[in-house]
Design a protein around this nucleic acid. Structure first.
Length: 460
DNA sequence: ATTCTCGGTGGTGGACACTG
DNA sequence: CAGTGTCCACCACCGAGAAT
């Protein structure tokens, strides 16, 4: 007979491990900590590898390659990056307080570096366990992909807020509280700086990269901005499925976009004319420059000025030469990053497919078991008796020991109450049903076996 | 008078090139 | 290949003027 422990393990894994998914309790999202974007990404990669079904943290093993793929730089740099950033993470304090509890801990408990193996083992502090494992309520999940291309750590945190309050569609913060939560209470004494580098920056990055983004309004007390009200929006640019980085994601056509900027000065036909004969980049540079000059009050006839500047090749050449060197360097690393991320996601996608398949299979098993259970006359007596009679089976005794007698329920309801808890009892009962109706179960299992073979996994 | 806005500036750290 | 220098972008801050 198949090993029950193994079977339980696999089933739980199938249900709980989505390789892209970050699961965080809301208190940890709202708690105070200050961290850099690189550190946040390393940390979130760690969290995405957690098996959230386990009651305790287990050491998290990473190959340096995991990070290499993520960052797209060479191995040497990654070694240095991980060791320095992990050390910093170990000194980063995180604190949370509500009416019941106050917790102070660090983000990372230990980092063991296996020399010449290209392997790192991380351990998270125990105090964080209740916030990251076996979460039943008050938690937020999101896809790692959303935050990978965010440059600012505040963007990552804003995205988490958007996810947390997605259901409400909005959220608010006192400016001081927000700064406090980000661990920057003593910085940005100038409100506009905070707005510029924290809020507006995050607004921009989320809009460009995430499935959710926000806009916000300011609430003033006198002249002072004291509170910010955020509204959450679903992004039209959101990716459909998977992680196709190459797919073009254009909201407006370039013609519409440029026309939107200059519609007060020239006609749509004029803009279309530009696009027919000039490179897009030249048009953009000319328009940007003209708008700047106009804003500075240096232009008398904006229509004529636009025509002149957009058609001005030298302006474009000058500007593009200036930008080229920077662009080249940036695109080189960006391309490298992109390829690396694609690889990582492909790999994780395969892993996700497997888990989805196992999860489907688990669902079918449950339906099969429930259908059969409902046909058994004296359910409780028959099944419980059989579980009890299997002397020496560890799983059976665990199942029985966790069985809760509830005097308010009928025997049958009590049975289903314990079954639905999804603990060991659930797996033992399923196993009983599968044996009792082994002929039928074989037929149910058959179609899955083929696909399991293709995915190179064995069915529980 | 207070607070916001915005251009300007210095510090910092990463990427890259150069050198021994 | 490690160490050093240079460049550049970004961040945080500052101060003058605008707005209220």
């Amino acid at each position: 007979m198949e090993n029950n422990e193994e079977r339980r393990e696999k089933a739980i894994n199938a249900l709980s491990k989505d390789p892209f998914r970050i699961v965080k309790s809301n208190p940890i999202i709202n708690s105070k900590y200050e961290i850099s974007a690189v550190q946040a990404k390393i940390y979130l990669l760690m969290i995405s590898k957690l098996d959230v079904s386990k009651p305790n943290f287990e050491p998290l093993n990473f190959s340096v390659k995991d990070f290499e793929r993520l960052y797209g730089t060479d191995t040497k740099a990654i070694y240095k990056l991980i060791s320095t950033e992990a050390v910093k993470l170990m000194s980063k304090r995180i604190s949370y307080e509500d009416e019941h509890i106050r917790i102070d801990t660090v983000l990372l408990a230990s980092c063991i570096y296996h020399k010449r193996e290209g392997r790192v083992t991380f351990e998270l502090p125990r105090a964080l366990q209740p916030f990251l494992l076996q979460l039943k309520q008050n938690f937020t999940t999101y896809n790692l992909e959303n935050i990978l291309r965010l440059e600012s750590v505040y963007s990552i945190r804003f995205f988490e807020f958007c996810k947390e309050y997605e259901g409400l569609g909005k959220f608010s913060f006192l400016v001081e509280d927000l700064k406090d939560t980000f661990g920057i209470a003593d910085r940005y004494k100038n409100y506009f700086d905070f707005k510029k580098y924290v809020v507006l920056q995050a607004e921009k990055e989320l809009k460009e990269n995430c499935e959710l983004f926000f806009d916000f309004t300011e609430e003033k007390q006198g002249k002072k901005v004291i509170k910010l009200h955020f509204r959450i929006h679903k992004n039209r640019k959101q990716k459909k499925d998977g992680f196709d980085f190459d797919e073009a994601e254009v909201i407006d056509s370039p013609v519409e976009e440029i026309f939107g900027l200059v519609k007060n000065f020239v006609s749509l036909e004029t803009v279309q004319g530009w696009f027919a004969k000039l490179p897009e980049e030249q048009i953009r540079i000319g328009v940007d420059y003209s708008l700047e000059q106009n804003k500075a009050g240096k232009v008398k006839d904006m229509g004529a000025y636009l025509q002149k500047l957009v058609n001005e090749t030298s302006l474009w050449e000058k500007e593009s030469k200036k930008q080229q060197a920077t662009k080249d360097r940036k695109s080189k690393t960006d391309a490298h990053k992109k390829v690396a991320q694609q690889e990582l996601f492909k790999e994780r996608q395969a892993e996700s497919d497997k888990n989805e398949f196992l999860s489907d299979y688990e669902q079918v098993i449950k339906v099969f078991s429930l259908t059969k259970l409902n046909t058994i006359e004296n359910l409780s007596d028959e099944v419980m008796e059989s579980i009890r009679s299997e002397q020496g089976m560890i799983m059976n005794s665990i199942a029985l020991s966790s069985y809760e007698n509830n005097t308010e329920l009928s025997a049958k309801d009590e049975f289903f109450f314990n079954y639905e808890k999804g603990t060991t009892f659930y797996y033992v009962v399923n196993s009983y049903i599968q044996q009792k109706y082994s002929g039928e179960f074989k037929l149910v299992k058959q179609p899955f076996e083929l696909k399991a073979k293709a995915l190179k996994i064995s069915l529980p």
